[in-house]
Simulated assay, not measured.
Amino acid sequence: MSASLAAAAPASLPVTSERLKKKRTRHMKEQVIEALLFFAACVSVFTTVAILYILVSESLVFFEHVPLFDFLTDTQWTPLFADAHYGILPLLSGTLTVAGVGLLVAIPLGTIIAIYLSEFASTRVRETVKPFLELLEGIPTIVYGYFALLFVTPLLQMIFPELPGFNMLSAGLVIGVMIVPYISSVAEDAMRAVPMALREASYATGATRFQTAIKVVTPSAISGIAAAYILGVSRAVGETMVVAVAAGMQPKLTFDPTEGAGTITAYIVQVALGDLPHGEIGYQTIFAAGLVLVLLTLLFNILGYWLRRKFREAY
């Protein structure tokens, strides 16, 4: 008996070592994959920190020449003129007005499309509509800009004859159409992730399909829907080419969408493509304006996070 065990032992050793070798190789592969994933996460964090560092450090140089109080309260923005003024309010009003018009179009339309595709559309309709929405996402923004200038603006001038050629209304409307796919796609994915058991429970209590979609599915997916809205806000605030082409680039403190005005992004493009050398106060203004844009986006993200928590507690 012992002789047979001794004879069998050497034969089993290669099998055991082969298993250990495979296990060690698999463990090393998992460590490599984990390291790659960690590196990818660090790249995003490093990029964000680097952007903030550049904006803050360059903005501090700008604020050595321009008081912060004047920057936040002056109603004129003429940094490239002989009589220079550095008030961010005209650019900020243009940015908020254009983004507001766009969101008034995109949020209702995107939400309605998301509810329809998630709860009412057949599989065939959904597979037909979704590619068209994705196609809208892929159109270059400069094309949207010329569409706003050459099609939407003349169309609006038929209704409002005194509407100028460059105005924030046409730019905002086109931006709203442009960000509809972002909102509808993310919101629809959030709604389709809601468990079917919630829908079935709602139907069992006698609720209609519409009542289930509005009172059960939408509140359950509010976190994803809020994320879609924040994505749309960030996209509208940061849009460049549409406002540069259709809204004009003349800073003006106004919230009237029928007038032309400049935005923060349009001004950054205007200066970045100019001949101002790095280090001059006129060039440093783009970093201060960019910092305001980042803080504005951060404010909207904080607001979205607060709304998500509030709705979660409510439901």
Rank of each mutant, 00 (worst) to 15 (best):
V32C: 04
Q31L: 07
V271R: 07
A7R: 14
L253F: 13
L80H: 12
L117D: 00
C42Q: 05
V294R: 06
K252E: 04
A201W: 15
T73M: 10
V242T: 15
F160Y: 10
P140L: 08
C42F: 03
P108I: 10
V61H: 07
I183P: 06
F255L: 03
E280Q: 14
A197K: 13
S44Y: 09
H65R: 15
S234G: 12
G238R: 03
R192H: 11
R312V: 15
L163P: 08
Y203R: 15
M241W: 03
G172E: 05
D189I: 14
D275I: 15
A236E: 06
V269W: 05
L298Y: 14
V49F: 07
A11T: 12
Y283V: 01
Y86R: 02
R192P: 10
V101I: 15
V292Y: 00
A204R: 13
P195T: 02
V143Q: 06
V292L: 07
L96K: 12
E280L: 08
F311G: 11
Q76T: 15
E137F: 04
V45D: 02
T218H: 07
F287P: 00
F147I: 08
F132L: 06
I222A: 13
A82D: 09
T16Y: 10
L298G: 07
L303V: 15
V243R: 09
G282D: 04
T254P: 09
L155T: 14
G94H: 12
L295F: 11
G304H: 11
S59L: 01
G100S: 13
P219C: 09
T212H: 01
I175F: 13
F151M: 11
P277G: 10
G138H: 12
I264T: 08
F151S: 08
P257S: 06
T48E: 01
A272C: 02
S220K: 05
E34K: 14
M28K: 12
T141P: 08
A213I: 02
I142P: 09
V143A: 10
E200K: 04
V180S: 09
I142F: 10
G165L: 04
A213R: 05
L298H: 09
N301R: 08
S185Y: 04
T97V: 14
E188M: 07
R126M: 00
F39K: 10
L298D: 05
V105K: 15
I159N: 00
L149S: 08
E137R: 12
F62C: 00
R312P: 06
T240L: 00
T73N: 06
E239W: 07
T48D: 02
L273R: 13
A82L: 09
